[in-house]
Design a binder for these strands. Structure first.
Length: 508
DNA sequence: TTCCGACAGTGGGGTCGCAAT
DNA sequence: ATTGCGACCCCACTATCGGAA
């Protein structure tokens, strides 16, 4: 199949906002693709690359060669060149990568270049990724979407699942099983503003667990072989030796466990997320990193214990199996209750210990990948500040032509100015975007045709955030984590905004 | 007819490793 | 030694479609 066929399908998918139409376009293409190119087609049209990463990003794609007029590139040839790009390493590899990229793009027409460039940058913007592709695979293969979804959870890679469905139908999908050593797509949580709201959504009795601010891990053990994967299914076994040792020492030799690793201080309080994250990412001298920053692990779910797959069993049963296989000090603290007051007390205690919040779990829900259903709901405390807008950046995509990303500052009583604490684009409705674009242009100081528009610091905006972290990027040495807009405060003037001292007092 | 679950899009801060400067 | 880039860790929120109620 030719790349131009995919580029045209992608354009058609992007052109119609109706999901059913997108699914029809995608399914029609899948019906035409041959078995040897099915994985590539499914990957590209769901925004993925079979190589997963190339070492090529936005900067490497800035200037493309002149396009060709005739479309001749096949999926296999493109895939082949991308594989060669990916495998370049060592001195001279950037030049080699650039040359191969030139060769590839010089063989493409304009629409193919556009499609591939967006795909590599991870900005397909056709309104269809995994979720829509699952439906398209179901339609093209005749298998129920639920079977495709389940196989995807077990295999973790839609192109492989989709190709199997196209060639072997529902039987091929049912052949995907939980395999020790191969990561499963993890179950994710929705969020709620309060424990009471979460309990109501779950419907009465629920399990509340500590939410630790670390890195999600899935640990597999078969005999003496242990592997560890992240939420995105990256293999980090070599980076977390203490976790490997812990799992190897358990009395059960056949296991798949779900949990969180976190760096704790000697007093048991958590290190800032940056410390845990940096430790888990360290690959060069793990032995030394482990001495200075040891990791602790807390498990909260068991997907397999001693030969039994537990995915379809209710949370309560899985947790009982977890408790059978793992000693209590390695299990995330948990309270089962239907009582709102007791739940809130638990939440307060967890936050008082310096942790992130709680996860409220329905005792009946099976293990289901993604955010599907409301089996798990996280609750975190929310802080707010009144800050001043210092500048805004022009948006992209559906925010093109709108001033979108806000630069936020706290008042500096000593200097009389404002200290930038970070940016946010979250929480803005279309109406608010339109309003602030107009307002910022009135307040503009300096040029408005660049990337960033500076504005007179007159607007106060209420910002919610999860915490204040150390920053080497901003002048105050601190930045807000997960900042989002709650509302503008027309009733407040900038001299009533919160100060840097207030913010500093919130830093961990 | 209205409601709500699922999905895609739009970006945020921080860290590490690697190659180039 | 420093810088730029890519990949990945954590992630919140709104708009929209279409099936459920």
């Amino acid at each position: 199949m030719l790349l131009i066929d995919l580029a045209r399908t992608s354009a058609a998918v992007a052109a119609d906002s109706a999901r059913l139409v997108k699914i029809r376009h995608l399914a029609e293409l899948l019906a035409r693709v041959g078995p040897d190119e099915a994985e590539i087609a499914i990957a590209y049209l769901s925004g993925e690359l079979p190589q997963r990463q190339l070492g090529v990003g936005f900067a490497s794609l800035r200037d493309l060669p002149e396009p060709r007029l005739a479309a001749t590139a096949t999926l296999s040839r493109v895939d082949d060149l991308l594989s060669r790009i990916r495998t370049q390493s060592g001195p001279g590899s950037q030049a080699a990568r650039k040359a191969l990229l030139e060769e590839l793009f010089a063989s493409l027409t304009r629409p193919e270049q556009t499609f591939l460039s967006r795909l590599i940058r991870g900005e397909l913007r056709q309104g269809a990724l995994d979720g829509v592709m699952i439906e398209a695979v179901a339609k093209a293969s005749g298998a129920p979407a639920a079977e495709v979804r389940r196989a995807l959870m077990l295999r973790g890679w839609l192109p492989a699942v989709g190709a199997a469905a196209l060639s072997g139908g529902v039987e091929a999908l049912r052949a995907f099983r939980l395999e020790v050593g191969r990561p499963v797509s993890p179950m994710l949580a929705q969020s709620a503003p309060s424990v009471a709201a979460a309990l109501e959504r779950v419907g009465g009795r629920a399990a509340l667990e500590w939410k630790l601010d670390g890195v999600r891990v899935q640990a597999h053990r078969s005999g003496e072989t242990v592997s560890v994967f992240t939420r995105a299914l990256e293999d980090i076994t070599a980076q977390v030796p203490e976790l490997v040792e812990v799992v190897r020492a358990l009395p059960v030799a056949d296991l798949v466990l779900d949990g969180e690793v976190i760096a704790l201080r000697p007093d048991g309080r958590p290190e800032p997320f940056q410390i845990t994250s940096g430790r888990v990412a360290s690959r060069t001298d793990v032995a030394r990193a482990r001495l200075s920053t040891p990791l602790s692990v807390f498990f909260f779910d068991a997907l397999r214990v001693d030969g039994a797959d537990l995915l379809d069993l209710p949370d309560e049963t899985r947790h009982a199996e977890l408790a059978r296989a793992v000693p209590p000090e390695l299990i995330t603290p948990r309270l089962v209750t239907g009582d709102v007051a007791r739940g809130e007390e638990f939440f307060k205690e967890v936050v008082g210990r310096g942790h992130e919040g709680v996860v409220v779990k329905s005792p009946d829900s099976p293990y289901a990948a993604g955010r599907r259903g409301a089996g798990w709901i996280k609750v975190k405390p929310r802080h707010t500040l009144d800050l001043v807008v210092l500048a805004a950046e022009w948006g992209s995509g559906r925010r093109e032509g709108r001033l979108s990303n806000l630069h936020l500052g706290a008042r500096d009583p000593s200097g009389g100015g404002f200290v930038m604490l970070g940016k946010t684009f979250k929480g803005l409705t279309d109406e608010l975007l339109a309003w602030q674009t107009e307002r910022f242009l009135e307040l503009a100081e300096g040029p408005v045709d660049g990337w960033t528009v500076r504005v007179r610091p007159e607007l106060v905006v209420e910002i919610a955030f999860d915490g204040v972290q150390r920053s080497g990027r901003y002048p105050g040495g601190m930045a807000l984590r997960f900042a989002r807009v709650i509302r503008y405060r027309p009733d407040k003037t900038p001299d009533q905004a919160d100060t840097v001292e207030t913010v500093r007092s919130l830093m961990i």
